[in-house]
């Protein structure tokens, strides 16, 4: 019976821990001179305390059930693709990186491989033309010069 409400208890615990962590960190913020009497630590301490209190309330009175996802794999694939994109973008250039990203996300949304490739092949150059050429926002160029 407690299991479905576990998500809220866990969230409460995370909030309490985070509040405690921030509060502890704030106590180390000692300055030799501050223009105001309370300095940089009082405010974060107060806010962290408030957050921890909210977390404690959630642990005592959880409310939400975590609804199971119908599909998990597509979300994980998309997340991994976005992280890799962040690392790869400056290395391989905007068009190849964006093409790969779009293909993965299109596949995650249930496109056939051919359609996914088409989606990436249109989106990546179109965005590059719009942003880099038309709007003059420099995007990273890879070894291919694009």
């Amino acid at each position: 019976m407690a299991a479905p409400l576990l998500a809220d208890r866990a969230l409460g615990a995370v909030l309490v821990l985070a509040g405690a962590g921030v509060g502890w960190h704030a106590q180390s913020l000692e300055v030799a001179f501050a223009a105001d009497p309370i300095g940089p630590k009082a405010f974060p301490t107060l806010v962290a305390l408030a957050m921890a209190v909210c977390g404690a309330v959630l642990m005592v009175a959880p409310a939400t059930r975590w609804e199971k996802a119908e599909r998990v794999l597509p979300g994980i694939a998309a997340t991994v693709a976005m992280f890799v994109y962040g690392l790869a973008l400056p290395e391989i250039g905007f068009i190849p990186a964006t093409f790969a990203l779009c293909v993965v996300i299109a596949l995650a949304f249930g496109a056939t491989p051919l359609r996914a490739a088409a989606s990436g092949a249109v989106t990546a150059p179109a965005l590059w033309l719009l942003l880099d050429r038309l709007l003059d926002l420099p995007l990273p160029r890879g070894p291919l010069g694009i």
Partner: peptide, 17 residues
């Protein structure tokens, strides 16, 4: 969706960049 959302994500990340 497979046309729209890849574009949204790519535009999001390009905006951050």
């Amino acid at each position: 969706a497979w046309v729209l959302y890849p574009g949204v994500i790519a535009l999001s990340l390009a905006g951050v960049w």
